[in-house]
Design a protein around this nucleic acid. Structure first.
Lengths: 215, 215
DNA sequence: TCATGTGAAGCACTTCACAGCA
DNA sequence: TGCTGTGAAGTGCTTCACATGA
């Protein structure tokens, strides 16, 4: 990767496609391939070959002219770019249904992350190990963030607690929050906040459907 | 709304912002406002005023020059555009932690949707009412889709079942699937598939953070 | 020869700036 | 006067096409 790269200079669409490339690479690898051209890779990732090459060009040169890309090598490079060469420790805050769903799913591990601790206010959960992860009290939040060095947190608390918990997380040193509540978090500009709003997702999809008819 | 509008002609970014506008409108309404200018609205939705006006222009003219937009009226228009003037019935397939999380959350109702039925293979769940929604067996899938007229389905089954269940849904007449598994569904082009991959979301965020250091 | 990496061309989205209307 | 709706200008992303290197 180009050294001292300015991440702001990389177009957002490019960043959004990187995870798709990583997945496409693993998919081809699993099919027994070792090397693939930008065409094969692009088809798997559902983009154009030029787009794939252009996207990668922001980070350096990875392929071999006349041959293509070494899959394993490119995965390693993407992991460097995404900062997931070592599994990133992630904190889960709010062990409700959604929190448990996140803990149970494999996609986080597969994608380069590991939920290393959970926080909940319920005394029934604090101190227990849930889905393989130890649950701590809210009072221990700052301590846990420091101890496990979690720069990222998944916010799956009830909406009314979201803003206050988010502030505690930032105070404790968390740099990025994946916000599963529908609350608009107001935090320092420096903190990366990614909102995951199921309502938005459904509305976006509904737009493309025919209108519902009256019965 | 412009009649017989070609939805393909509306830029994707514009469609993606519509849900944000709807939320901004409700937010201002709750603050006691009745009318708002594109500036007020745009600030709430975190876009530029021109962008807001341009986006709306794809669907007709809604404001009053010199005054601004009537909030209630614009919400109604947006609901028409998004096809959520009547609550859209949605089918939930897979009543695990994630499925239950979706059922419990309020954002779907608030956004113009209602989960009207659930499907699961577990005999412990079939026939019961879970989080206010009746659970049916997989064998009843087609029947349930027809009976409740669900054009949209939330796919929260284990990954190994995803493709086959998705095919059954399409066969039964479902037009859009929100796919929460990491499986790349291969379905007819006509079906709208929206993937929600938590792994992608985390990778995207991780890109903007400093690399993890070796300890 | 074959496929990458990359300037140049093309396209799409955003922002500007103002005419027109309340 | 104040704000919308919109052509025109500007910006940024995507696609093209080819020089370069294996």
């Amino acid at each position: 990767m180009k050294d001292a790269m300015n991440k702001e200079a990389v177009p957002k669409p490019t960043v959004n496609r990187l995870p798709h490339y990583r997945k496409a690479l693993e998919s081809l690898l699993q099919k027994g391939l070792v090397i693939a051209s930008s065409h094969e890779l692009a088809r798997e990732a559902e983009v154009t070959p030029s787009q794939l090459r252009k996207d990668l060009a922001f980070f350096g040169t990875f392929g071999t002219a006349g041959i293509g890309y070494n899959l394993r090598e490119l995965i390693a490079r993407l992991d460097e770019i995404l900062g997931t060469r070592r599994k990133r420790p992630v904190l889960l805050v709010g062990v409700g249904n959604l929190g448990k769903a996140v803990l149970n799913h494999r996609f986080l591990t597969r994608s380069g992350f590991e939920v290393v601790a959970a926080i909940d206010i319920s005394p029934k959960k604090v101190g227990r190990v849930i889905c393989g992860v130890r649950c701590y009290s809210s009072a221990e939040l700052a301590e846990v963030v420091t101890k496990f060095d979690t720069a990222m947190a998944l916010l799956t608390v009830p909406p009314q607690a979201a803003q206050s918990v988010a502030e505690q997380l930032v105070e404790a040193g968390v740099k990025a929050i994946i916000n599963f509540t529908h609350i608009n978090l107001r935090l320092s500009e420096k903190v990366v906040v990614e909102d995951v709003d199921f309502g938005y997702i459904l509305q976006k999809v509904a737009f493309y459907l025919d209108p519902t008819e009256a019965k």
